[in-house]
């Protein structure tokens, strides 16, 4: 496997959804290729950065509007 081939299998590898044969070849390449190791580490951190980030706060005025709208709609919905 070359760096370019590793690139193609990268997402499947990161998602743990990879063919065992390809996974073995990929890990063999990885053991010998320092730049690819760093790329994979960068990618894991990239994903974590977005996964661990807090969602934005809801604007207060919108939050109130949203909750009262849903309460109203709930009543109407339950009557049907």
């Amino acid at each position: 496997m070359k760096c370019e081939d590793l690139l193609k299998a990268l997402s499947d590898y990161l998602d743990g959804d990879i063919d065992p044969q390809i996974c073995q070849e990929l890990e063999k390449h990885l053991a010998e290729c320092d730049p690819c190791q760093v790329v994979i580490d960068n990618l894991k951190k990239t994903i974590l950065l977005y996964r661990k980030g807090e969602p934005f706060p809801l604007p207060t005025e919108f939050q109130e509007r949203l909750h009262s709208l849903i309460r109203e709609r709930w009543k109407a919905h339950r009557k049907d």
């Binding site: 070359k2 760096c3 690139l7 990268l10 990161l14 290729c33 730049p35 960068n42 951190k45 990239t46």
Partner: peptide, 23 residues
């Protein structure tokens, strides 16, 4: 993922540890 990695590594990567890609 690759585009984000590229952008973020330019921002947060340590230049002293930079590797040249194998082509």
């Amino acid at each position: 993922r690759l585009q984000l990695r590229e952008k973020l590594t330019r921002l947060f990567g340590d230049e002293a540890t930079r590797r040249m890609p194998h082509h």
